[in-house]
C-alpha cells in the first residue's frame, strides 16, 4: 500500500509535495509534486500539474504532466494536458488531449 493515499471522498486543494509513493483515489486541485511513483485510480479527479518519477492514470487528470521515467494512461483514464516523459503508453480506451514531449 502506498505511503500516501488520498482516498475516495478526500479533497485536497493546494500543493501536495512528497518523496514517497502517492495514490490518488479522491480529488486533488493545485499541484502534485512527487519524487516517486504516482497512481491516479479510476474515479479520481486531479486538476493539477503533476510531477512524478512515474505516473499511472486510471482516472481523470487535467493539467500538465512531467514524469522523469514514464506515464501510463490506462483504459478508462482521461488526460487533458501536455505530457513530458521519456516513455508514454496510452491504452486502448483511454482519452488524451495534449502534446507529448518524449525528449527526443
Amino acid at each position: 500500500m502506498a505511503a500516501t493515499v488520498i482516498g475516495h471522498g478526500i479533497t485536497i486543494e493546494g500543493e501536495v509535495t512528497s518523496d514517497e509513493e502517492v495514490l490518488v483515489a479522491g480529488t486533488v486541485r493545485g499541484k502534485l509534486n512527487v519524487d516517486g511513483p504516482v497512481t491516479i485510480e479510476a474515479g479520481a479527479v486531479v486538476e493539477a500539474d503533476v510531477g512524478a518519477t512515474s505516473l499511472s492514470v486510471g482516472g481523470t487528470v487535467t493539467g500538465n504532466v512531467n514524469a522523469s521515467d514514464r506515464v501510463d494512461l490506462l483504459a478508462g483514464g482521461r488526460l487533458i494536458g501536455d505530457v513530458k516523459a521519456a516513455r508514454l503508453t496510452i491504452a486502448d480506451g483511454a482519452s488524451f488531449k495534449g502534446n507529448v514531449d518524449m525528449d527526443v
Binding site: A3, V5, I12
Partner: peptide
Amino acid sequence: ANVSTIGRGTVVRGS
C-alpha cells in the same frame, strides 16, 4: 481507498 493516509514524506499546503 476509503482509508486515506498522508504519509511521512508528504507535505500538503492547502486544505
